[in-house]
Nucleic acid binder design. Structure first.
Lengths: 146, 146
DNA sequence: GCATGATACATACCATGATAATAAAAATGC
DNA sequence: GCATTTTTATTATCATGGTATGTATCATGC
């Protein structure tokens, strides 16, 4: 997250970066990107929270659901697709299991491996939440406040 | 933060959002924005961590430093300028005080109010860290990986 | 001029990101 | 074919975001 409510003015950036070779506009564009994305993430997080969910729980379900030809992923595969650490995946998995949104099955040949699949409830939850998720993103990209 | 390493394909987004009025390109642009900003934030956080700092500590110092005509801000004014909750500002203030980067002075007329100012060390720390900060942003905006 | 409410800041605790260390199973090598 | 290394997943602990609550001080109204 980027926490600055008011971005620095061009002049202010110049006074900071003046001695370096990077143009103030480039810096300002970067800060604008950070700020825009942070606000969007805030909105998305608030939306998920209203549904007793979180961005990570949502994406966890998505990566399983979007996999073609298969209806499950291993914990390691989920970790590969999500940009979070293994322990966070393990903990998120636990909460999703507790809520009955996914199932965990140990592999027959290699008992280190766990196959994670969506339950019908998990899939339903996903389809419930998706439209609002897309709407928030679309609103933001169209410059409107939802 | 946005955690998806590989953004969904256009087709995949369509399959999810097909029934709504938002175009898949708009959604994809939004996801791209989120992903780009998240990667940049990761780089910045790693940079700050290498300097025993954090994005928030840095911005905390910045908002004091950039204030014109004054060399201090109250805790409330800092909270207004940063998009974080009061308690987080209070805790960050404590760590900055412990590190000797800011001073805290109770107001003469209203003893609820604390005036926070940079110490010379705080200002020096800021000037040490700033160039690398701008460089990371500039690199990212120019599409280069640092 | 004292009770009541508002304001400024801090504390207590929860949620969720990280890294380091661990446990269990499989693969490897002599 | 057993010791060692690698792989998979988890547990333990820390850092830092949040909300709810608490404390001290100031402002207000009767």
């Amino acid at each position: 997250m980027f926490f600055l409510k008011d971005l620095p003015t061009r002049r202010m950036i110049e006074s900071y970066s003046g001695h370096y070779d990077t143009g103030p506009e480039t810096i300002r564009d970067g800060l604008t990107l950070l700020r825009r994305a942070s606000l969007l993430i805030r909105r998305l997080d608030a939306y998920f929270a209203r549904h007793g969910f979180s961005q990570l729980r949502f994406l966890f379900l998505i990566v399983i659901d979007r996999e073609e030809d298969r209806d499950s992923l291993t914990v390691g595969e989920i970790t590969e697709r999500l940009d979070v650490s293994g322990p966070v995946v393990a903990r998120t998995l636990r909460t999703l299991l507790d809520d009955g949104l996914v199932t965990k099955v140990t592999d027959k040949n290699d008992s280190r491996i766990r196959h994670i699949a969506l339950t019908p409830e998990g899939r339903e939850r996903l389809t419930t939440i998706l439209p609002g998720y897309f709407r928030i993103i679309a609103n933001e990209m169209e410059g409107e406040d939802p």
